[in-house]
Computed example of a mutant assay.
Amino acid sequence: MSYLSATNMTGGYGKADILHDCTLTVDKGQIAVIVGPNGAGKSTAMKAVFGMLGLRAGQVTLDGTDISALSPQDRVKKGMGFVPQVNNVFPTMTVEENLEMGAFIRNDNYRVTMEQVFDLFPILKDKRRQNAGELSGGQRQQVAVGRALMTQPKLLMLDEPTAGVSPIVMDELFDRIIEVARTGISILMVEQNARQALEIADKGYVLVQGANKYTDTGQALLADPDVRRTFLGG
């Protein structure tokens, strides 16, 4: 059984369904990437998995446990970490304070985890006393990912982690995401930079109008002529 199994999700906002029988699964330590055109429901699917969107149909299980009825806060306690695309740091708090906020659900000594975050993102250690709002876009993304890692998640969900950053920073973030997955943490990621994201993906999902259009390994999707022509620019 997949570590995350979000099956047959149908739902949206109010009476308008955005997701239509959408299914996403991620195995332990896998990187799964959701790509597709604007308005395809990618971020909506992520929010549904995290419990921020009510579903009319479908089920979400984590490590074999049905969590469909749980709030986002309770899903964090079960092992989910979520990094939204925008407003994902506390700009008037220092880097270290942002990371401490990520440990709010923990009662143990979180300093070891903080050092692991600093090992993953060395620039954050150098800037630990600096307010997060003063950092570059790429550095703020590192803070946001680091704060999510402070909860010790088993599943890390990233909504457009490379939005607005340079290609060099994008490559660096993807390298760090690979490192996180190698520790056994499952990754579910929505990404506009589809070609680059599929290159690091164990599994890829192409969504169109809230439904699964293509599902395969990242490499298979990159090699699929229909996917390349329609979604990857040829």
Rank of each mutant, 00 (worst) to 15 (best):
M1S: 12
T7I: 09
T7A: 02
Y13G: 01
G14E: 05
D17E: 14
D17G: 08
I18F: 14
C22V: 09
T23A: 04
L24T: 15
D27W: 14
K28H: 08
P37I: 10
N38H: 10
S43D: 04
A45G: 10
M46E: 04
F50K: 13
G54M: 00
L55F: 07
R56D: 12
Q59M: 06
T61N: 05
L62N: 00
L62V: 09
G64Q: 02
A69K: 12
L70Q: 12
S71Y: 09
G79E: 00
V83T: 05
N87T: 07
P91N: 01
E96L: 01
E96N: 11
E97D: 12
L99W: 03
E100Y: 05
F104E: 03
F104Y: 15
F104H: 09
D108M: 11
Y110D: 07
Y110H: 13
T113A: 10
T113N: 05
M114Q: 13
M114G: 13
F118N: 01
D119P: 13
K125G: 11
K125A: 09
K125N: 11
R128E: 01
G133E: 07
E134R: 11
S136Y: 10
G137W: 13
Q139C: 06
Q139E: 15
R140Y: 00
R140D: 01
Q141M: 01
A144T: 00
A144M: 01
V145H: 02
V145W: 07
L149F: 12
L149D: 07
L149I: 13
M150S: 04
Q152Y: 08
K154H: 14
K154L: 01
L156M: 05
L158E: 01
L158K: 07
L158V: 11
D159I: 09
D159E: 05
E160Y: 12
P161C: 03
A163Q: 13
A163S: 10
V165F: 11
V165Y: 08
S166L: 14
M170E: 12
D171E: 15
E172H: 15
L173S: 13
F174R: 05
D175V: 11
I177K: 05
I177M: 08
E179P: 10
E179W: 14
V180Y: 08
A181M: 14
R182Y: 03
T183I: 06
G184W: 13
G184R: 09
S186A: 15
E191S: 13
N193G: 07
A197T: 04
E199V: 11
I200Y: 07
A201D: 08
D202P: 08
V208C: 05
N212K: 04
K213E: 15
T217P: 05
T217C: 10
L221N: 11
L222Q: 06
A223V: 09
D224A: 04
D224W: 06
D226N: 12
V227Y: 01
R229D: 13
R229E: 12
F231R: 09
L232H: 10
L232E: 14
L232W: 11
